[in-house]
Write a protein that binds this DNA or RNA. Structure first.
Lengths: 340, 340
DNA sequence: CACGTTTTGGCAATCGGTTGTCATGTGTCG
DNA sequence: CGACACATGACAACCGATTGCCAAAACGTG
């Protein structure tokens, strides 16, 4: 049909196109689509019909610019290739999508600098941020949280909403498990020095060990990668312990491989406990005894907490801290202590 | 200092703040920052100093709105939790960051509908799109590529730039390997029906089998998850083959687990070949013989091809197709055919 | 029927940049 | 020394939506 409008080009439709088609003002279209109550139901239906007909998709940039809300949430993880984060990412992705948000996933490469600059960057282009296993200092996190809605995962800083995974308590379970199997000298293969969860876990472990009269020693730090497992295994063997609790499954799996290479039997000569129950923990050789937790759920909870900050509609203050339970999953990598 | 300007608030600095500080127009600031040559070097330096002093960070929304360029690239994968994509994602992330782009990672949940709507969505908020293992039809992909710069990975559609992983040729290698071990009846455990790589691989495999006088049969389809491995293993056992080539490592690993449960020895009773050499393929039990390729590099190449589309500065036409080599990595899951 | 109240919808400013146009100012050359 | 090209920077129009403000319309009531 011959139209007098400038161009019904192939270009995506805007509210102006809709307005022209309906013979109303662009602002009315905007209202009809975002605050339906402020507009006559019949006008609204005409507008909705026109929007559908034109395959209208709102321009998120423009919306962000004028409203200040971007509809995006940044999710920062230290290492995308660490399977631990798969489930977390999956959880955040699902929950964010359900709420109509877009996930901006960034790998901070275990670097506090990348993390800091990303947080700063995201302050403009995201409505909120979820930071997993932050490498930032408490102060930096606190400052960031003051400027942007932010939720941490596995990082406990007073004043910053957080989802915590209760590995410390699972650590005691792991210790009990090993002690009951007759192990008396146990090593903790520590994670990065900047990792708060590693520190918390070691504290819990050494306290629990004292109560039970077991001896624990701390080795490392080790990078949370399977490659570090070789060094960890060698350190463990050299230290003479009969059982190890690793910072995470990656290190534990790496140890398994190295010990096998060295002809040291797991669990006959050495027992290994991992942490996180990542992809692979159930099919490595031997299958790994590890501390499991509902990671995907942690991601969902983190999103919920963040959204509660963004839309403080609920009267009661939103939960600002959530602790995910963790339990020990016993598989084949732990067994009775070798006879001396 | 007492300033006459409206507000030196805590709010992030804009080019207007810089302009006011330097006593020039905002447009000059814009030019100084984006087209430095168009501005006097001394003015420019003053502006740059002011920008640094004010910790100026450009607002990406505003920039996107007026320039049309968002500085973001969408990366679509069917399943974030599939380890195959870790390396790909890592590759795209690194290369994109190096080029100053932001990665928008989306999990399309193996759904063509989600994929289609995401592509449409991203058309506005990203400068280009990389689609891994697309579930869309050739026509849909072609149409999308016409509207948005787009590169596919592992999906060959004429007219759409693509990075292909040459698993078909590796499939022949795998077949040779198995035939030389004495296997005569071999099953291919197919992937999703919508997966083009699965189809291509089957074609290559059946052709190669004909040349070599081996018998191959196709079982499935199976979902690319370890859970499907159980069904795959049972189907393989029932079919009476002595060796299987699986669509990917997830299925292969699942088969390993199931066969172990059923007391069938790998590789004594059954040989298994996977594909992708994902995380876990080297430490499962037994370690998996699999077809390996430089996935991270594939991600980087995909980004390069996309960026070449975005900035067609090079005179010669950009490469529109790139094939990544694949080779067979022999580990413990394959061995001589059992004596009949 | 007049008046007050509530809906309803239009106008225009605004978000923070980019970019085309144009008026200067500077330098070079014949 | 005049003419001309070019470098420079100001102005203003946009990009596509949101939103405060106000006027017109619709409604109800006495």
């Amino acid at each position: 049909m011959a139209s007098t409008r400038p161009a019904a080009a192939d270009r995506p439709a805007t509210i102006h196109d809709i307005a022209a088609l309906c013979g109303v003002a662009a602002s009315t279209v905007s209202r009809a689509l975002s605050t339906p109550d402020r507009v006559n139901i019949r006008t609204r239906q005409r507008i909705e019909a026109a929007a559908a007909q034109l395959h209208y998709i709102p321009n998120s940039q423009a919306r962000a610019l004028s409203s200040g809300r971007t509809g995006a949430v940044g999710v920062l993880v230290p290492d995308i290739t660490n399977p631990f984060y798969f489930d977390l990412i999956r959880g955040t992705q699902l929950q964010l999508k359900a709420a109509g948000y877009t996930q901006l996933l960034v790998d901070t490469e275990e670097s506090d600098e990348v993390e800091a600059s990303t947080v700063e960057q995201l302050r403009k282009s995201a409505d909120g941020i979820i930071v997993a296993a932050s490498r930032l200092s408490d102060d930096a996190l606190l400052a960031a949280a003051a400027k942007t809605p932010l939720v941490t995962v596995n990082r406990d800083v007073p004043g910053v909403p957080a989802v915590l995974i209760d590995t410390p308590s699972a650590t005691s379970q792991a210790l009990d498990h090993l002690v009951s199997l007759g192990h008396a000298r146990i090593a903790y293969m520590a994670g990065p020095v900047t990792s708060q969860s590693s520190a918390r876990r070691w504290t819990a472990l050494s306290e629990a060990a004292e109560e039970r009269g077991a001896e624990v020693l701390r080795l490392g730090p080790f990078a949370p990668k399977t490659q570090s497992g070789a060094a960890a295994a060698d350190a463990a063997v050299h230290s003479g312990v009969t059982a190890c609790i690793a910072f995470n499954d990656l290190i534990a799996i790496g140890m398994l491989q190295r010990l096998r290479e060295r002809g040291i039997s797991v669990p006959l000569d050495m027992s290994i406990v991992g942490c996180d129950d990542i992809f692979g923990a159930d099919f490595c050789n031997p299958p790994l005894t590890t501390m499991a937790s509902p990671i995907e759920q942690a991601g969902r909870v983190a999103v919920s907490m963040l959204l509660a900050q963004l839309n403080p509609l609920a009267v009661g203050g939103a939960r600002t801290r959530s602790v995910m339970p963790t339990h020990l999953t016993v598989r084949g990598s732990t067994g009775p202590a070798p006879l001396t």
